[in-house]
Design a protein around this nucleic acid. Structure first.
Lengths: 221, 221
DNA sequence: AATAAAAAGTTACCACGGTCACACCTCAGG
DNA sequence: CCTGAGGTGTGACCGTGGTAACTTTTTATT
């Protein structure tokens, strides 16, 4: 990916929609920034690492994960092209990453330094309002996650997930968006526990499933 | 609390530090706002209620709580005088309260309408930057909470809580900041479970405790 | 096609914690 | 003083889900 490529991506990004191509070029010429590539499974930011840049994902997918000391993984959210990470840390009173940011595929990220963000905010109202929206939306993701994990039983988590996917995919036959292992991490549980509960649910007549799909039969039983 | 009282409070608030008393008066004359009083245990905002105002707490304490369908309570955070609620909802793409906001004591709140906030942001850079900090800090509170509750065992929660309080109170003898019932809600667990675990920890020689204090003996045992 | 490496399913074991039931204590208001 | 309400300690019961060990299936690599 060369300079021209990512300028094209940027100019179609909602945060930068108010800047002319010329203005964008000028800004990026005047400021220090880094475009970095990461390979799959590479750690982009470690938990507790100090945050100095706002990161814009140009391509690829990254996972934000909470790792506890025993090695358990809880995936908070997945972000992809166009999403912004770290903006909240730049403006908050504590600026170390509370979670690990991990490349889920080959990823290209634009690291924009703090001073540049502040200046962009000052230059342009659309950018600033957009950034506030971005930051605010992060709190929604987190409250959703709290809701999801404070729902005690694994069966509840699964039912909720199936309802959601069924709505999105508009079907009772749900193609799993990721491996069962990843799904377990998303629920913050053991893979074997997920397997076990799925089996129980099949036994109870709620669902049917194979390696890649789950078929809803009667979730209310 | 009369007009002059809360103008005094406002002018010493960090968000408004950049406004002269005269400017503040002018703004509040020009805009519609509401100062409301709530009694203890009154609901200030219901879960799913639509958010139209940013709320500034003038006095009292409020709890943000997540209530699930079975009536279990998880207290996310406690806010008090000077704290701001709802700012993130005003700017986010979904603006209904994800949690319940409850008065923990008699409370006075200044409800500032969305349009006023946007205008204040446009008028004054300090206000806008301060607001971004406020919103950003909310994400930290939420990630902390996720960390706290995804720490499986109740004993871990208690130990973490005691470490924290011990540092704050600079003592091995910790005065409980609230009733054990409230503490259980903060952990999102059953009161009896908290009681049971405290007893076990006493039996194991980690702590000693009575109705209002906990004494740390050896948390690493 | 052969082989290695992930992912997925299965099972027995048992600790943690929710539930319910009851006794006790403290404190405010009649 | 009594009474009732709310906070608190304790017990028995048992379901959920973590753990660990193993097998089977799928996927990737040569």
């Amino acid at each position: 990916m060369n300079h021209q490529d990512f300028m094209t991506i940027l100019s179609s990004h909602s945060l930068f929609s108010d800047f002319s191509d010329e203005a964008l070029n000028q800004i990026f010429r005047a400021h220090y920034y880094e475009k970095r590539e990461y390979e799959k499974d590479q750690v982009i930011h470690f938990q507790n690492e100090c945050c100095r840049t706002m990161d814009l994902i140009l391509s690829g997918r990254v996972a934000v994960q909470n790792l506890d000391c025993e090695g358990n993984v809880l995936t908070i959210s997945i972000f992809q092209d166009g999403d912004v990470l770290g903006a909240n840390l730049i403006f908050s009173s504590r600026n170390n990453y509370p979670m690990t940011v991990l490349a889920q595929s080959p990823v290209v990220i634009l690291h924009l330094h703090q001073e540049m963000i502040v200046e962009l905010c000052q230059m342009n109202r659309t950018f600033m309002i957009g950034l506030m929206k971005t930051i605010s939306d992060k709190t929604l993701i987190l409250t959703d996650k709290i809701n999801a994990i404070s729902m005690k039983t694994i069966r509840q988590c699964i039912i909720d997930f199936l309802h959601y996917e069924s709505r999105i995919q508009k079907s009772q036959v749900i193609r799993l968006p990721s491996s069962k292992k990843d799904l377990a991490q998303r629920f913050g549980i053991q893979r074997s526990s997920l397997s076990r509960e799925l089996s129980k649910m099949r036994q109870d007549g709620l669902i049917d499933f194979d390696a890649k799909t789950v078929t809803i039969k009667d979730l209310d039983a």
